[in-house]
Amino acid sequence: MPTYSLAPGWQRVLSALDLDPVQVLRRADLPADLFEGPRKRIGAEDFFALWEAADALHRGPDLAVAAASGVSADHFDIPVLAGLAARDLAQAAERINTYKRLMYPVTLDVRGDAGLRIALRPRGPFTPPAVLERFELLFWVAFARLATGARVGPVRVTVPEPPEDQGAVIEFLDGVPLTKGHRAEVVFSPYDVHRPFVTTSHAAVWQFLEPELDRRLYALEASTTWTERTQAVLLACLPAGRRSLAEVAAELGTSPRTLQRRLGSERTSFQEVLAQTRERMARAYLQRSALSYAEIAFLIGYEELTSFHRSLRQWTGETPRGLRSGTGVPV
């Protein structure tokens, strides 16, 4: 399954928010040494669990606002450095979107019509927690202010789940409230999109880093196994009702026979990859959502609830209720 490298500043950011990194990791049910030693890679569910744990432990009015308020040139990872070296917000959005996939389970849908629209696009079927969606959008406002040196404000910020208390968000956005919509999106005016950046001093560093990042992107794509590619396609296809070998092979641009042969060379099979992907999705939906068992069964490709129960027992030795209990999600 796709994994993502944690940015090196996680511990520093958590500490700046008065959060104990060890407590956050424990709450997220992740290894206590995750932030120590060599940079580790985690799946999308674990990445989202980190944010959920931090949100649960945060004592302030809104973790997303607190995190966005702490944005500074000292805390940026490499993709954001690429943005700071851009000429304006339009170019920065395209650059950050390109390199974000090296280390993040959420990518962007960037559109330049009537200003600039930046919408979140999850890399897989798992929806980011509401606090992460808010931060991602507020980050762009903070980033625009830092890069332009002006008090840039958005035209509109839309989220699927606005918080009940928007006081901190409205203050951060200089009076602009969050509106409810089907996807998380921030919109900037044409004027603000083309404000010149005052951070162009980063351009010399960027010229040095760009070839290395391009090499890493190429290596990431070239090193992806057929098992990983099949899993990635299934993550998107299963909720849409497409789960056959022929359908997945077509998405990958190959034939069913060739796909089976390539998976066999990696000591697995299509049915094994399908079962592993279903189990991963079932665990995530049961532990991170309030979807009914019938809805989860449908989303992972089961037409009958009894078949879902039987498979889950085979994979995990648990019932859906057993996996969901203790997670804080209603059963």
Results as ranks from 00 to 15, higher is better:
316 T>E: 09
96 I>C: 02
185 E>D: 10
92 A>K: 01
130 A>L: 08
330 P>A: 04
4 Y>V: 10
252 L>D: 06
115 G>F: 07
220 L>I: 10
148 T>A: 04
153 G>E: 08
241 G>R: 11
133 E>H: 02
116 L>G: 02
177 P>V: 08
13 V>H: 11
229 R>T: 09
205 V>I: 15
169 V>G: 00
19 L>D: 04
327 T>E: 13
295 E>N: 13
29 D>C: 04
294 A>Q: 14
92 A>N: 02
131 V>P: 07
28 A>N: 04
1 M>H: 09
114 A>L: 13
87 R>E: 14
211 P>S: 06
251 E>Q: 13
31 P>K: 00
277 T>W: 10
18 D>I: 03
227 T>V: 11
183 R>G: 03
255 S>Q: 08
178 L>W: 04
242 R>Q: 13
295 E>F: 01
329 V>D: 10
289 S>R: 03
32 A>Y: 09
249 A>F: 02
136 E>G: 03
219 A>S: 10
246 A>K: 13
118 I>H: 00
144 A>R: 00
241 G>A: 03
97 N>I: 07
149 G>Q: 08
297 A>R: 00
102 L>F: 02
247 E>H: 05
137 L>T: 10
34 L>E: 07
315 W>K: 00
231 Q>E: 13
221 E>D: 11
78 I>R: 00
30 L>M: 06
279 E>L: 08
25 L>G: 03
329 V>Q: 15
287 Q>L: 14
284 A>Y: 04
48 F>H: 04
169 V>C: 09
15 S>G: 05
330 P>E: 11
121 R>C: 10
46 D>Q: 11
106 V>Q: 03
191 Y>T: 12
259 L>A: 06
209 L>P: 10
66 A>D: 05
290 A>H: 02
4 Y>N: 04
23 Q>W: 05
290 A>C: 11
93 A>C: 08
203 A>R: 15
3 T>M: 06
101 R>S: 08
302 Y>N: 09
29 D>R: 04
208 F>M: 15
205 V>M: 13
139 F>D: 07
170 I>E: 14
50 L>V: 07
54 A>F: 05
194 H>S: 05
145 R>L: 06
303 E>W: 00
99 Y>T: 05
98 T>H: 06
236 A>G: 15
87 R>T: 15
4 Y>P: 05
249 A>W: 06
126 F>A: 07
138 L>W: 01
270 F>H: 05
265 S>Y: 11
197 F>K: 01
174 D>S: 12
36 E>K: 00
78 I>T: 12
131 V>S: 07
179 T>D: 15
198 V>T: 09
55 D>K: 00
165 D>T: 10
175 G>H: 07
7 A>E: 12
230 T>D: 05
75 H>G: 14
283 R>T: 14
271 Q>I: 14
253 G>Y: 09
94 E>K: 01
221 E>P: 06
260 Q>D: 14
298 F>C: 14
5 S>K: 08
